[in-house]
């Protein structure tokens, strides 16, 4: 009897030691995994896109009812504000009619000048519309998962835009899903232009909702309200995509408010820009042709 009690006590003690040992091993393994991610990002990114791919159908299915409920709420709200909306839009139309005339004149002038200089306009880009199936924006990462991947012709490094402006770029593409690094993420760096002054800068995310402009030329004088567009440098993004407006200038930091509300995206368009640029940088993208 006593022997049995002793062996039970021994088993309990052994189990406690084994548990503590497994904790230590797993904590070390976590640190090891962090180091692997730091040294060889490719393995980790590969694994990431596989896991996202595997759960994409589930996330997609779950995202649909949420989107539907949001749509109903938005519809109800829009219905209530119909009269005001109408008055506002009528005023806006009157204002825009003036710009329409200006635009027609400028377009004609532009075509004339292009013909004069034998200018080759850039080819238009194809796009793939995707549904947002996961919003991974935590306190430390800003990214989305969408339900299109290599099967639909999406590749790494493509620009993702919403209805109003740039959202980010694709960073890992699986077969059925892709991750979009938002322009607010700490690791996002996008070559941009200040539209008014044509000065180049890099839009650097820092996990806040307003990324800042880095590498501004010293003589630049951005003003609040200046439009920021992609510059097209580096060849990743087409030039001239609207990004945002300068929101505040202070402490040597120029903050940009993105045009797109990044926290309520339901659909994004992935621009297949490089497939049409040709040359050495052209990559074979299935289904990406015109």
């Amino acid at each position: 009897m006593r022997q049995q009690a002793r062996s039970v006590a021994r088993i309990v003690a052994l189990r406690a030691i084994a548990q503590r040992f497994s904790l230590a091993v797993l904590l070390l393994a976590s640190v090891g995994v962090m180091m692997i991610g730091k040294i060889d990002a490719v393995i980790v990114e590969n694994l990431r896109s596989r896991v996202t791919d595997a759960v994409a159908p589930m996330l997609d299915a779950a995202a649909r009812p949420v989107a539907a409920v949001n749509q109903v709420i938005a519809d109800a709200r829009a219905f209530l504000a119909l009269r005001e909306e109408n008055a506002r839009l009528a005023a806006r139309v009157a204002e825009l009619q003036h710009y329409e005339a200006v635009a027609h004149r400028l377009e004609a002038e532009n075509l004339n000048l292009q013909a004069l200089f034998n200018f080759h306009p850039e080819q238009t880009h194809a796009f793939i519309t995707a549904r947002v199936i996961a919003d991974n924006s935590g306190a430390f990462v800003r990214s989305l998962a969408v339900n299109v991947g290599t099967r639909a012709g999406v590749g790494d490094g493509m620009a993702a835009v919403g209805g109003r402006g740039l959202v980010g770029r694709t960073v890992q593409t699986g077969e059925r899903s892709a991750r979009i690094l938002l322009l607010t993420d700490l690791n996002a760096r996008i070559p941009v232009l200040i539209e008014r002054t044509r000065q180049r800068a890099v839009l650097a995310g820092d996990n806040t909702h307003q990324p800042s402009l880095a590498y501004l030329p010293p003589d630049s004088a951005p003003l609040a309200g200046d439009r920021i567009v992609t510059s097209g440098h580096g060849g990743l993004f087409p030039p001239g995509l609207p990004v945002g407006v300068v929101a505040s200038i202070g402490d040597g930091l120029v903050r940009v408010e993105p045009f797109e509300d990044l926290s309520r995206l339901e659909h994004v368009r992935v621009l297949d820009f490089r497939a049409h640029t040709g040359g050495a940088a052209m990559r074979g993208i299935p289904g990406g042709g015109p």
Partner: peptide, 8 residues
């Protein structure tokens, strides 16, 4: 893996 945070 799912949120895109640093692994581990």
């Amino acid at each position: 893996l799912l949120t895109g945070g640093p692994l581990g």
